[in-house]
Design a protein around this nucleic acid. Structure first.
Length: 322
DNA sequence: AAGTCTAACAACCGCAAATTA
DNA sequence: ATAATTTGCGGTTGTTAGACT
């Protein structure tokens, strides 16, 4: 009934690091049966190993398999892991299927020892992949506003004016930026749509279906092996590793130097000032902030995503045609 | 040189899903 | 249909080597 007793509980079964002899015995046994191992539970007895079948499977899949890739993770692999983790969470085995020659255990270890800390240094929550409040940063210093995507800053400022920080708006802005990255849009278009996101966040503080729409599409693409959308902090010409170096330098210098190629520092100032100064009464401050936005083209349902999903659906579909 | 700390990685454990009888 | 068994996954712990004091 229920779970069967595991051989691992047998005091006679050896535990701990594997010896070369054990490795050799396991490899030879498996190589005698190319294509299928058979029963892992019965393997130790059949191969003469005094090990638990589970332990044999783990040793084979994580260390002895001939197709395992050794060496450090490349920047591309690192970015891929982050993107997959943003969409899938701690599904290490699923993530591992997208990285040839890497095991789930290896990826999990790499995440916990490298990437997780790197994200925290950059002020990104490794669980939600959203920007953390300044006091949550690993080293205790506040994040450089320069590294925040401009759209996030606009949205943050707008949301603040609209009545408190709205994480839905932040998420919306970030996802829009991901969309822009996916379609390879120009800076002008990026700024335009960032402002649209800000305007939308400002004028419509309720959540919309856009994030879900994008996330679903994102996940579907990942699972089908198609291109995927990267988290906002990866959507930049410099690599993630370079960003981390920049972030560390910024933290060391305790400065907020603007990120190359962006004009976000002024937006950051606006956002900061707005959050300090605006008591966020609905109505008037919103209109005041709207004046800061660039002229916007006429777009359907600009201020109400909920009533214009078809518009966003069209944008989304267009983006995947590129 | 010895002790301590930290990062990196290997291995273990418990659980749940999948499979088999 | 259901109990028994096996396999795989994800979280956690243990071990080791190198850096630091």
């Amino acid at each position: 009934m229920g779970r069967s007793p595991c051989c691992c509980h047998d005091a006679c079964v050896k535990k701990g690091p594997w010896t070369e002899e054990e490795d050799r015995a396991l490899v030879e046994h498996i190589q005698r049966r190319p294509g299928h191992v058979g029963s892992w539970r019965g393997l130790p007895k059949a191969s003469g190993l005094n090990r638990c079948g589970k332990s044999c499977r783990l040793r084979w899949t994580n260390s002895l398999r001939p197709d395992i890739k050794r060496g450090n993770f490349s920047d591309d692999e690192e970015s891929l892991i982050i993107s997959l983790h943003a969409a899938l969470g701690n599904k290490w085995s699923t993530i591992a299927t997208h990285l040839e020659g890497r095991t789930d255990n290896e990826i999990k270890n790499y995440w916990n020892t490298h990437i997780r800390k790197k994200l925290l240094r950059m002020g990104v929550d490794p669980v939600t992949h959203q920007q953390l409040p300044p006091h949550h940063h690993l080293d205790g210093t506040s994040a450089s506003a320069a590294l925040l995507p401009e759209s996030l800053l606009w949205a943050a400022a707008a949301a603040t004016l609209g009545g408190g920080l709205n994480t839905g708006a932040l998420m919306q802005a970030q996802l829009l930026q991901q969309l822009l990255h996916a379609i390879g849009s120009s800076n002008d278009t990026a700024n335009l749509i960032a402002n649209l996101a800000a305007a939308n966040a400002m004028l419509n503080s309720t959540s919309s279906t856009v994030p879900n729409l994008l996330l679903q599409q994102n996940q579907m693409n990942i699972l089908s092996g198609a291109n995927y959308l990267q988290p906002g902090y990866l959507c930049n010409s410099s690599s993630f590793a370079e960003q981390d170096v920049v972030q560390q330098r910024l933290n060391n210098n305790n400065t907020t130097a603007p990120c190359p190629g962006t004009s976000s520092s002024s937006a950051a100032e606006q956002a900061g000032q707005s959050s300090d100064a605006a008591p966020a009464a609905d109505g008037a401050p919103v209109e005041e902030f709207a004046g800061l936005l660039e002229p916007l083209m006429e777009l359907p349902g600009l201020c109400s995503l909920e009533s214009s999903d078809s518009f966003w659906q069209d944008i989304l579909e267009d983006s995947y045609r590129f």
